[in-house]
């Protein structure tokens, strides 16, 4: 008889370095203490999946995996909102915490081979999308045009800036940034994310294209409206759902909406599926 794996057991991991991303948001680079665990995880995870992070004594929470499997490095980008995330923000290099996963369905990037990809993110909605943007560019020949639209309330709300600066120079990808409110140093576009679609140098069509959209509920609703005006159908729009999660493996029940357990059937869904699930974003 095979021994059942304990799906709830976090594996010890060590924090290597911490980078301030934006206000209240930090990126934590880490690795599993056990080498074989590290290898297993790197081989397994796919863009759009998440992991359960344990800050011992403070609790466990789901966090997206923003790295692409092609980067060979593991990190989380975490916003400080409550007890466990605040405790994580107190941690420095060398600190030990727990991770289990990877979980969820992921974006299944192979199924979009040959298509044009559009990424639209607002604020920290970029965390789950970062993974598939980097993945798409690492497998550039697999896809058609790749366009990134990223907006935040203000310039210091934009995460992963070095990456966008690099992409702005690249011929492989179109990268458009915007802020709702500029500051003295900002010389780029000003306006909500959707306003980027109307920029003169942007030529966005729905033909053979799939749009990945992540961001706060209000932004999501407006972007959906704009994409639909451009001819995108509900099944050409893909997003991730966030729900309160306690287990990540389909047992605790918290994430269950409609007929789906977001942790195992999601978190990635088409907009068509989201509408069928029948709950607010």
């Amino acid at each position: 008889m095979s021994v059942t794996e304990n799906i709830y057991e976090p594996k010890p991991a060590v924090l290597e370095r911490v980078v301030d991303e934006i206000d209240e948001v930090k990126t934590f680079y880490w690795r599993f203490i056990d080498e074989s665990e590290q290898r297993r995880f790197l081989e397994r995870f796919e863009p759009g999946q998440f992991a359960q992070v344990s800050i011992f004594g403070h609790g466990e929470f789901p966090a997206s995996l923003p790295p692409s499997p092609t980067e060979g490095e593991l990190f989380f980008t975490v916003r400080k909102v409550g007890s466990a995330t605040s405790a994580m923000h107190e941690m420095g290099p060398g600190a030990v915490f727990g991770v289990r996963g990877p979980y969820g369905n992921g974006f299944k990037m192979e199924s979009y081979a040959g298509m044009n990809l559009v990424f639209v993110a607002g604020g920290i909605g970029m965390i789950p999308l970062r993974s598939c943007i980097v993945y798409a560019l690492a497998n550039r020949e697999m896809f058609g045009d790749v366009k990134v639209f990223y907006g935040a309330r203000e310039p210091r709300g934009l995460m992963y800036m070095p990456l966008w600066r690099e992409y702005e120079e690249s011929k492989d990808v179109e990268c458009h940034l915007t802020v709702d409110k500029a500051d003295a140093e900002w010389s780029g576009h000003v306006g909500v994310v959707g306003s980027l679609f109307k920029k003169r140098d942007v030529n966005l069509t729905s033909k053979n294209t799939v749009a990945f959209v992540c961001g706060p509920p209000v932004m999501f609703r407006f972007v959906i409206r704009d994409l639909k005006t451009l001819g995108f159908s509900d099944s050409q729009i893909i997003s991730t759902l966030e729900r309160y999660m306690k287990c990540g493996v389909g047992k605790c029940g918290h994430c269950c909406i409609g007929v789906a357990y977001v942790c195992v059937d999601g978190p990635v869904f088409t907009y068509k599926q989201i509408k069928q699930l029948g709950e607010d974003i």
């Binding site: 004594g57 609790g59 466990e60 306690k246 287990c247 047992k251 605790c252 029940g253 918290h254």
Partner: peptide, 10 residues
């Protein structure tokens, strides 16, 4: 019923 929550206690 099957739902549960998880909590850490010192």
């Amino acid at each position: 019923c099957t739902c549960f929550t998880v909590s850490d206690r010192c």
